[in-house]
Design a binder for these strands. Structure first.
Length: 215
DNA sequence: GACCAGGCACATC
DNA sequence: GATGTGCATGGT
């Protein structure tokens, strides 16, 4: 039996579809992916609203905006000085290397895009994969803190597992389908928020925490 | 007032 | 390679 896929099915039937990623355009997904680093999504929404109100939601406008102004807008998302640099770094390189075109980026080989993303300051593995999956619809799995905590709890990984180890466990037994992989990540975040917090990673009320998973 | 949130870069050993 | 630290706001 495929334990990981079983968890996915359980979560989907108990929590339903998650409608991720909440954004109007692929570029907005990218901005959100950077702003949500180690930050509550509610704070990110405020920052994105500020950017929208000032028409700072395109590569050009961000590249041409001062760090100070950009920082002021994204302040609610925290770490606003570094994140302002990251947004400008992304926008500048995106314009320079791909003309700011999502379509041009999307048409490249997946691994090539990933390497390009990882070459940018402020984009690590999780952010790169979030962009690949939710902005570019590439079939990759996004590993985050909740994924690790939940998988640890169910003995699917050990503490030393690398990002790639965790990702491989999911991808090898899942269909190469961005919709399904995106749904799974969203479900893990949702269940993690309620049942797998840092201080209480062993909550019995979690919808995936019974029977066969402990046999 | 402590704890937490959809990480990452950089210094140091 | 692994471990530690700075980055910061807003909700519970």
């Amino acid at each position: 039996m495929n334990k990981v896929y079983e968890i996915y099915k359980r979560l989907l039937s108990s929590l339903g579809h998650q409608a991720w990623w909440p954004a109007e355009t692929p570029f907005e997904v990218i901005i959100g992916a950077i702003l949500t680093q180690n930050t509550n999504w509610r704070n990110v929404e405020k920052a994105i609203l500020n950017l929208k109100d000032s028409n700072l939601i395109s590569p050009d406008s961000i590249a041409n905006c001062s760090l100070a102004t950009l920082g002021k807008h994204i302040k609610p998302a925290g770490y606003y000085n570094v994140k302002a640099k990251y947004l400008k770094e992304f926008s500048g390189r995106f314009l320079q290397d791909y003309g700011g075109s999502i379509k041009v980026l999307r048409d490249l080989d997946c691994m090539e895009i990933r390497e390009w993303l990882l070459s940018l300051k402020g984009v690590g593995e999780e952010t790169a994969d979030s962009i690949l999956l939710y902005a570019l619809n590439k079939p990759v799995f996004v590993v985050d803190a909740y994924t690790r905590r939940i998988f640890l709890r169910h003995s699917l990984i050990d503490e030393a597992a690398s990002y790639g180890n965790v990702q491989e466990i999911v991808e090898k037994d899942f269909p190469q389908d961005s919709k399904i992989l995106g749904e799974f990540h969203a479900l893990l975040v949702e269940v993690g928020k309620h049942f797998c917090k840092r201080k209480n990673p062993l909550c019995e009320k979690c919808p995936i925490s019974d029977s066969i998973f402990y046999s």
